[in-house]
Amino acid sequence: MTALNPPTARPNALSTWLVCVAAMVLVMVTIGGITRLTESGLSIVEWEPVAGTLPPLTQDAWEAEFEAYKQIPEYIEVNGPAGMDLAAFKKIYFWEWFHRLWGRLIGLAFALPLAWFWARKAIPQGYKPRLIALLALGALQGAAGWWMVTSGLSERTDVSHFRLATHLMIALFTLGGLVWTALDLKQLARDPAAGNARLTGFAAVVLVALAVQILLGAWVAGLDAGYVARDWPLMNDAFWPAGIDWSSGWWFAFTHDPFLLHFLHRWWAWAVVVLLVVMARRVKRMGMRPASIAIHSSFGTQILLGIATVMTGMAFALAVLHQLVGALVVASTAWGAHVLGRKN
């Protein structure tokens, strides 16, 4: 059981702050989707946490950035032959720069208020380690982002889909942690004797199933597997796709084949939906209808967006919304899991 100790603790204020940071993470996931879809992620070939805050400010600086980009395989094999000029480079540079800038802003939006709350002795007993862990996750996310970028700077023309998945999964795990901690603090503000929610067995099953779906989606994105079929529910007029390459074994196919991954991402989604429906119904029976509505609304919208994205040949706006709403599914599922695990 968590107590309001010291007496200056302000759980409600901390909860509001964490919700705001969670909203910034949602924006970050959206920007990340745009960065991926515009193939902007390799446009900045160095990681400069401080100096990189500002974009190039002179023509010479822009020319230097473009020359650095010209040395990597993406330019040599793809964009150079396609005739990319400095103006086109500036467009992809913007999204990667903005993506990194927003990450820095999230770090400041977490670290500075955390220091202030800490100095004011406003953090309830038992929450400091959890808040430090969330800060560490943010730092890990930045490091994973650069680790992802480095996979495309020497031998590949794109980033590793495994590293892309790691980058996305850390972001969404952080989002879930922010939501869960904010809800614990909100509960504490309402009832100083309230205990923290626990993760129930059923909620863990739902979260694992959702994590598998997110992992498949990240691999689909990283391998451009969304483009292999434009019909639904069939794939190229067949339920089981004909283009799967099994020549390197089932495990390689499972982790690399775009046809198989597209198929699995489509149909595993329905297993997740069944679990989310059950979760939402249980949450509603516990008197938390808003959480139930959030779960139903987010996964329902996500399913429709997924189908529409496929059938429009990966229309840009729909693909970006699909990534954003996927993050909302994570947030609403974390809310539902928290409701199921409340002690009071």
Rank of each mutant, 00 (worst) to 15 (best):
G107M: 02
H99L: 02
Q125C: 08
V278F: 11
F252P: 00
A171C: 00
F66E: 01
L318Y: 06
G243S: 09
V283S: 08
P129C: 06
D245Q: 06
G176S: 11
L112E: 02
H161N: 09
S292C: 10
C20W: 11
G243V: 04
Y75E: 08
T35A: 01
G142P: 09
G249F: 07
T35Y: 03
L264N: 08
S292A: 15
T166F: 12
P192C: 06
Q302M: 11
T58V: 10
E155P: 02
L4P: 05
L4M: 15
A194S: 14
T38H: 03
R163S: 08
L86N: 05
Q141D: 06
T255H: 04
M84K: 03
G41F: 03
G341L: 05
L86Y: 07
A242R: 13
A269P: 10
Y75C: 11
A317Q: 10
L14C: 09
W180C: 12
R230C: 04
V310C: 01
G142L: 05
A253K: 05
D237G: 06
Y93K: 04
P81A: 01
T174V: 02
V220Q: 09
S297A: 15
T30V: 11
W116P: 07
A139V: 15
L135Y: 07
L183C: 08
G306R: 02
R100V: 00
T309R: 05
K70E: 12
A68F: 07
L328R: 02
T309N: 14
A291V: 14
Q187K: 04
F98H: 01
N5S: 13
F94N: 05
D237S: 13
L223H: 02
P124V: 04
G32Y: 00
T157S: 10
A111G: 12
G152K: 02
D85W: 05
S297K: 00
P73H: 02
I123K: 01
A115V: 12
I307N: 03
T35C: 08
G177F: 05
D184S: 06
L153F: 11
A22D: 09
R285M: 13
L137W: 10
A68M: 12
F162Y: 13
G52H: 01
V208K: 03
N12E: 12
V339R: 11
T174D: 04
G41N: 01
P129D: 02
L324P: 00
E46N: 13
A271I: 15
A165D: 03
W102G: 07
V27Q: 04
L137N: 04
W47F: 15
K91R: 12
T53E: 05
M169R: 00
A327D: 06
T30E: 07
D158W: 09
V274W: 05
I123S: 00
A165I: 09
T174H: 05
L275M: 13
V329D: 08
G226S: 02
T53H: 00
N5G: 00
E155N: 07
A88P: 07
F89W: 05
T58Q: 06
D158E: 12
A204S: 14
L105C: 14
L183G: 07
F254E: 03
G326V: 06
L216T: 03
F252W: 14
L114E: 01
A197E: 03
T312L: 08
M279W: 05
H322D: 01
D191C: 08
A13P: 08
G80R: 01
V179M: 00
D184V: 09
Q125W: 03
L137A: 14
